[in-house]
Computed example of a mutant assay.
Amino acid sequence: MSGPDIKICGVTTREALDATIRAQASHVGFNFFPPSPRFLKFADAPALAAQAAGRILRVGVFVDADDSFIADAVAAASLDAIQLHGKEDPARAAALRTRFGKPVWKVISVAGPGDVAKAAAYTGVADFILFDAKTPKGAALPGGLGLAFDWDLLKAYKGPLPWGLAGGLAPANVADAVRGTGTAMVDVSSGVESAPGVKDETRIRTFCFNARNL
């Protein structure tokens, strides 16, 4: 299918996952950060993992989690990739990549040009970079707040790692985001919800359609 890869993040129900698969998203994000309204309990993960198997790639989202917690999530959700959304440094990314044998994605929080440049440090130790908006100081969550950053900051990015775009994306602006940045992936969470943590089937379908029909 043409257009960027699409990740619908923070899916917690069979209905939301079914809508995500029907909309032909390429990846689903399972959030394993307990304070988030999108937190997926380990007990609920196996059923969703089985539903996704062979139909969509499963990405686990973690925030400064320890090895045992990540191991439990990898097992429960049969994860295809590990996304690091905290302050994990390159050494931590490399260690997790080696231990679990899974692709590691690193989220880079962006407010200015210097933040984009931080992606270079993950060359050779991560497999994918996801540029997201930097959250306000003191925010309870590292993402999922519907905040965007200046996408023009990515125009000059020529890093060696493939990368995607997150932060403030929604059905109404995703086409402009893809056109303006040339991103290989768009990642959305709150932008396809009717309330925090509640995915909306129509918004998921419209988001995926608009991302691919520029």
Rank of each mutant, 00 (worst) to 15 (best):
R38Q: 08
I82W: 02
P113I: 12
F32S: 12
K155P: 05
F42R: 13
V63R: 11
I21R: 07
F39E: 10
G168Q: 01
L161S: 03
K155L: 12
S36V: 02
D152A: 15
A43M: 11
G101W: 09
S68Y: 06
T181Q: 04
E193V: 01
L79V: 08
H85S: 14
D187G: 07
D72P: 07
F128Q: 03
A94I: 09
G3D: 07
R22W: 08
V125P: 10
V110D: 00
A172L: 05
G144I: 01
H85W: 13
A117C: 13
P34G: 07
K137T: 14
A175P: 00
K41T: 10
R92H: 14
D176I: 00
S2C: 04
A75L: 12
V104S: 05
G10M: 06
G197W: 00
D18G: 10
V63L: 13
R55M: 02
S109M: 07
T12F: 05
L161K: 01
S189Q: 03
A172Q: 15
F128Y: 15
S26R: 09
P4R: 01
L147Q: 07
A166G: 02
T12R: 15
V188Q: 03
F100H: 10
Q51K: 11
L130Q: 05
K137S: 13
A94G: 14
V11G: 03
A53W: 08
C208S: 15
L165A: 01
A71S: 15
G143P: 00
S68I: 07
P34I: 07
D132M: 08
R99S: 11
P103D: 07
Q51S: 08
W151I: 01
L154Y: 00
A47H: 09
A50D: 12
S194G: 14
A156C: 03
W105T: 08
V192K: 04
G180M: 04
S68R: 14
D44H: 13
N31L: 10
K155W: 03
D115M: 14
F69C: 12
G168K: 01
A184F: 03
G146K: 02
E201F: 10
Q51M: 15
G168V: 02
L57I: 08
A52P: 11
A25H: 06
A45L: 08
D150A: 09
V63N: 06
R97A: 14
P136M: 14
A49V: 05
A121L: 14
D200A: 03
R203V: 04
G182P: 13
F30D: 02
D67N: 12
L57V: 12
I8M: 11
W163R: 00
G10L: 08
A175G: 05
G180A: 13
V178M: 00
D64R: 13
A139G: 05
V107Y: 05
L84M: 13
L214V: 12
F42H: 12
I70C: 06
V110Y: 05
I129L: 07
F30E: 01
P196R: 04
G86P: 12
D187Y: 02
A120P: 11
I8R: 09
E193P: 06
I129N: 00
P46S: 07
V188E: 01
A94Q: 14
D152Q: 14
S26H: 13
R97W: 09
I70V: 15
